[in-house]
Simulated assay, not measured.
Amino acid sequence: MAGLIKEGLLRSTWIPGLQFVRGRKVNVQRPRPPHYERALALAVLQPQYDWDSKVANSLPKSETCMKIPEIEKYKTRPDNPLERIFAKELKELFETKKLIAFLHANPICGEDLFSARVKLKKEGMKLEVYSKNIVKMALNGTPYETVIQLFVAHSALIFCDEPKVGKLIKIVKKIPQYAIMAGIVEGRLLSMTQMQAYAELGDLDSARAQLVATLNSAGSGLVSRLTQAQNNLITNLNQIIEQKTKVDS
């Protein structure tokens, strides 16, 4: 019996029905006062500034904000001895390293960051991350003060004892999470385009060899031009002597 009832219930089709209930009409012009708790919440959330006045509408949001005292607390940072130590180390790196690259860092996982450090370490380069406050503390009043504008939050820096610009560009191209914004090469601030042009010049030894070859070619050319008239005169005299000897014979 129970099986027949269950089978009948499963086979039966249920059709949903809709029933419209007409409620009370809402009075838009004179709405009903809210509940006490809701009225209390609305009173607390109501702005204390006179927003209806013309003066309030003309003022910027920075002056009408009610949290300005709280914001002012965060503008003055307490003295942190650890940040001063990091700033001193960063200043020494800027003064001693011949190559400093400023990177735009995208989100990167720990494994990719470790592999990037290994690739740079093989070429004698070091990857470091510093906050904007430490950079300001280290570079204020130095010739490198203009690079503070490149820092918005925590940014990555690459330091190297030698100006290996070409190798740096090749390595960073293989790391999609980083992009070179600018760099300091031997005390000069260069953009990414200028760094690429610098990398195409080659190393200093090859440039010196090219300069020596150019100077030698210029000197040898000058000597050949100076002796060209004498050589022509000697060859002409030899030809005249040979002709006279043939005539006499």
Rank of each mutant, 00 (worst) to 15 (best):
V28K: 15
L45Y: 08
E128C: 04
I134Y: 05
L10Y: 07
Q46C: 13
G141F: 05
K61M: 05
E70H: 02
Q19F: 08
S115K: 12
K132F: 06
S115L: 05
G124E: 00
S12Y: 14
S62Y: 04
A39I: 04
S58C: 02
A39N: 13
K126M: 03
L40K: 14
D112Y: 02
R32Q: 14
R11K: 15
R38A: 12
E72I: 12
M66I: 07
K67A: 13
V118Q: 12
K126Q: 06
N106M: 12
R77F: 04
M125Y: 01
I68G: 03
L90Q: 02
A101I: 11
L42W: 11
T142P: 02
F94E: 04
A39K: 15
L113Y: 01
L18N: 05
T76F: 08
L42D: 15
L18T: 14
L40Q: 11
T96C: 01
P16R: 12
K119M: 11
I15K: 15
E89Q: 14
Q46P: 00
L90K: 06
K67G: 00
T13M: 06
E111V: 01
E37M: 14
E37K: 15
Y74S: 12
L103P: 02
S58V: 03
Q29T: 14
F94H: 08
G8F: 15
I68Y: 00
A41R: 15
S58W: 07
P60K: 08
L9R: 15
K75Y: 08
L127K: 03
M125S: 01
F114C: 04
N57A: 11
K122S: 10
D112F: 03
P69C: 07
L59V: 01
K119L: 08
K88V: 00
P33T: 14
T76S: 11
Q29E: 14
P31S: 13
Y130H: 15
H104G: 08
G17I: 10
A116W: 00
P69L: 10
P34E: 10
N106A: 14
R11I: 00
G17Q: 15
L120K: 03
G23V: 07
I68T: 10
T13D: 02
V129I: 15
P69S: 10
E92Y: 01
I108S: 01
P107Q: 08
I68R: 05
A116K: 02
L90R: 05
S131R: 15
K73H: 04
E63V: 12
E37T: 13
K67V: 13
H35E: 12
K136L: 13
W51N: 07
W51I: 06
T64E: 00
L40T: 11
E95A: 13
R30Y: 11
D52V: 05
R38Y: 05
P107D: 11
A138L: 02
S12F: 14
